[in-house]
């Protein structure tokens, strides 16, 4: 079943335009595997992206896809889930898309806690626009727009998500697609907003943070004895002390998702509601305006 489903995803996928070796390939493959393992066929999944190399995620995933504007994957994704709670909704994009132009939506999506999974392919650079600095570029990073080195300090997405109250925060690495697929499985199953920041190397424009560099510098939480992913303060401290250089599930907590908090929100997907009902309720509706 699972194997067939991966094939099904691949059949729907468009052909790729990513540079050979781009980290994003592994992200798509891991997601196909995770969704297949969860027995979710492509038609029940919608992947929403913004703009960027990583914004092509949904073209290559092979599920339903909505490719919005730069930075705008999250509002669209949340609304799709609200409109049809039976769909599995994944938002995806780059670090510029999510933590630059889209940072406002990111923080609010964290606190709104709509049941979607957000995958950020974090390569510390703007890929599609051919190599400018990104909000996650380290201080001093030399790019086309920062020839003297980036002056700003990088955004710290994991801490932001933790501080914002996220119920599921994880980080993956394109160099370990197996772990990534496992994280994705858990994230998709998590009820509420889940963030997976994926270190996904840009082999073309980031020659510092290479697969090799990440491999040497990332601490794998799966191998950390005694790490407790249910303790938010400890998670925060761990991320801070490791300068974010971790991979694995960093924090998880069961929380009621947005839709569970809405009075009157229907158990049946909104998209299947009978739209003619209000016409029958005329007297009652008009009573509100007398």
């Amino acid at each position: 079943m699972a194997v067939n489903l991966v094939t099904e995803y691949k059949e729907h996928a468009q052909s790729s335009t990513w540079c050979p070796g781009c980290g994003d390939f592994a992200v798509v493959a891991a997601m196909q595997k995770a969704l297949a393992a969860l027995e979710l066929p492509p038609h029940q999944v919608v992947a929403v992206t913004g703009i960027g190399c990583s914004g092509k995620f949904n073209y290559y995933l092979g599920a339903n896809g909505f490719n919005s504007l730069h930075g705008r994957s999250l509002p669209v994704a949340q609304a799709i889930k609200i409109a049809n709670r039976d769909l599995t909704v994944i938002a995806a994009g780059g670090d510029g898309d999510g933590y630059g132009i889209g940072i406002g939506h990111f923080l609010h999506a964290v606190r709104r806690n709509v049941d979607i999974t957000y995958v950020v392919m974090d390569n510390h650079i703007y890929g599609l626009t051919t190599g400018q600095t990104s909000p996650t570029s380290k201080k001093g990073f030399v790019t086309k727009t920062t020839p003297y080195g980036a002056a700003e300090y990088p955004i710290r997405p994991l801490e932001l998500a933790l501080a914002g109250g996220a119920g599921f925060v994880a980080q993956g690495f394109s160099g370990d697609p197996k772990q990534l697929a496992e994280i994705m499985k858990q994230a998709v199953q998590h009820k509420g907003f889940s963030l997976i920041n994926v270190y996904s190397p840009c082999v073309t424009f980031n020659h510092e943070e290479t697969y090799e560099w990440w491999r040497q510098n990332l601490v794998n939480l799966d191998q950390e004895q005694g790490y407790d992913a249910t303790d938010r303060t400890a998670a925060f401290r761990y991320v801070y002390e490791h300068n974010g250089l971790l991979r694995g599930v960093i924090f998880r907590e069961e929380r009621r998702d947005y839709q569970s908090e809405l009075p009157g929100y229907a158990a049946e997907a909104l998209v299947r509601q009978d739209l003619s009902q209000p016409v029958k309720d005329r007297a009652e509706l008009l009573a509100a305006f007398m």
């Binding site: 919005s68 705008r72 509002p75 609304a79 409109a83 769909l87 406002g104 939506h105 909104l270």
Partner: peptide
């Protein structure tokens, strides 16, 4: 929504999913 950009994108998202 957090701003009008999000509000409008949400309206688009819900419409895409089939809800007015």
């Amino acid at each position: 929504a957090e701003d009008e950009i999000a509000a409008c994108q949400m309206a688009i998202g819900a419409n895409y999913a089939g809800v007015r």
